[in-house]
Simulated scan of single mutants.
Amino acid sequence: MIQEVIVVEGKDDTTAIKRAVGADTIETGGSAIGEAVMRRIELAQERRGVIIFTDPDAPGERIRKLVAERVPGCKHAFLTKSEARGMKGIGVEHASDEAIRRALDSVRSPQQEADRSQEDEIEWSDLLDAGLIVHASSATRRERMGEMLGIGYANGKQFHKRCLMFRITRTEFLTALEQLEREGL
């Protein structure tokens, strides 16, 4: 049984989570999260901790951002788009039990500002040098790097923010970049 409460978008996501692991969930009911739901998430964070596990699409990222801004310290689980792709779209509910367990085993915690070592921070220039921004294949490269680092797909600005928030070390970043280069991306 997972200790934290998992925040998901809807009842089909809850069904998929319960099928894959023992866990309690809070459903946001989509991107228009009500005040009562936010208060339940805040209480869950106080008492047990929260893992945000939303779909790897724009509405899912919007929900992730809204909850993370309102309820600091939440952990994050990510699926790749290919893991979440189903016949009727992209979503946690389409992921295999194995993909859900892998995502929950690879949960990331945000970094507190005071804990961050500035020498190890990923800089904007690192993304530029790595071809993750302002590059013909930057979106594809960011998607694959996000998979390898366990932080999901994001645009350049959000990718940089996630590298900082989830304490991606320079070593992790460079190792993933080497793998990316070996894959020819």
Rank of each mutant, 00 (worst) to 15 (best):
E46T: 10
S106C: 11
M148A: 07
D97E: 15
I33A: 05
A58T: 13
E178G: 03
Q45V: 05
Q111E: 14
K75L: 08
Q179K: 15
T14H: 06
I41G: 03
R40L: 14
M165C: 09
E46K: 15
G29M: 05
A103M: 02
I6F: 08
E46H: 13
G150W: 01
G29V: 06
L43Q: 13
F53A: 11
T169D: 08
V50T: 07
R85W: 05
M1E: 12
A44Y: 08
D13R: 02
K88E: 13
S137V: 03
Q179T: 14
D57M: 03
S96G: 14
P72Y: 07
H160D: 00
G10T: 14
A99G: 03
M38A: 02
R116F: 06
G150M: 02
R48G: 02
M1H: 13
A32T: 12
M38Q: 06
L127H: 03
V7C: 03
Q118Y: 14
G29E: 06
A20D: 04
I6A: 09
R116H: 03
D13I: 13
G91K: 01
R116A: 08
K65T: 15
T175R: 13
L127T: 05
Q158R: 04
Q118M: 13
E9Q: 11
V134Q: 13
M1A: 13
Q118S: 10
R62M: 12
G146F: 01
L43A: 12
E61N: 12
K75Q: 07
L104G: 00
S82I: 02
I6K: 06
E183W: 04
S138G: 07
L174W: 04
Q111F: 03
F78L: 11
A114G: 04
L127E: 00
I168L: 01
R47G: 09
S137A: 14
V21C: 11
A16C: 02
P110F: 07
R40A: 14
A176I: 05
W124E: 14
V37Y: 10
G29K: 07
L174R: 13
E121G: 04
D126Y: 07
W124F: 10
L128T: 08
G156A: 02
A95R: 03
L149D: 08
H135I: 01
L174I: 09
A130W: 11
L79A: 02
R167G: 15
A68I: 05
A36S: 10
G30I: 04
K81R: 13
R167Q: 12
T14D: 03
